[in-house]
């Protein structure tokens, strides 16, 4: 009995440390799960230069406040980011599927002096939705971005419904856009 009592604190400590270790292993990458601080709030406005191919439709710059009024998918990407190449075809297909009902906006960010690389990225996937250049990454900071890619699903009134960190898939896009349209 006394031996059990003596061993109890040791067993309890080992069990607690093991549980902590397992928790650390199982919870995955914590940084990917951080919810945006703008959930349910209006996302910050931005006014950024557009790539040439979109200028005929939107003019030289895109201002978020001026295009509010329909659900939006705002996707942050960079030309050096591998997963961004993975998700770009899904974004283009979703844009073609939803047409004018949902506004897709691409923001090239954390990619200073890489307009040529950005242009190549857009051409590679034939992105027909407007893409802007956040040369000094200020919009990325304004949105509290942790990395690229990150995608913000925004209601027509400009409030944030959901932020997804990592490459989006067709399933994620249809789920989140479905929620925006409900």
């Amino acid at each position: 009995m006394s031996r059990v009592r003596r061993l109890l604190p040791v067993v309890a400590t080992v069990a607690a440390l093991s549980a902590l270790f397992l928790f650390g292993l199982l919870r995955g990458s914590p940084d990917r799960d951080i919810p945006s601080n703008f959930l349910g709030r209006e996302v910050p406005n931005f006014d950024l230069p557009l790539y040439e191919r979109y200028m005929s439709e939107f003019g030289p710059r895109l201002t978020l406040d001026e295009v509010l009024g329909r659900p939006m998918v705002i996707n942050f990407w960079a030309s050096w980011c591998g997963p961004c190449y993975e998700e770009a075809p899904h974004l283009q297909r979703a844009h073609e599927r939803y047409g004018d009902e949902v506004l897709f906006i691409g923001i090239q960010t954390q990619d200073r002096d890489a307009r040529a690389a950005g242009r190549a990225f857009i051409n590679q996937f034939g992105l027909s939705f407007p893409n802007v250049f956040d040369g000094d990454s200020r919009t990325s900071i304004a949105y509290g971005l942790f990395g690229v890619p990150e995608t913000f699903f925004v209601h027509a009134d400009g409030t944030l419904h959901h932020k997804y960190a990592g490459p989006v898939t067709e399933t994620i896009l249809s789920e989140q856009i479905g929620a925006l349209r409900r």
């Binding site: 951080i34 910050p44 900071i141 949105y143 509290g144």
Partner: peptide, 10 residues
Amino acid sequence: FFQERYGDWI
């Protein structure tokens, strides 16, 4: 300013 955008994480 940064807390407003990134939350307490920052």
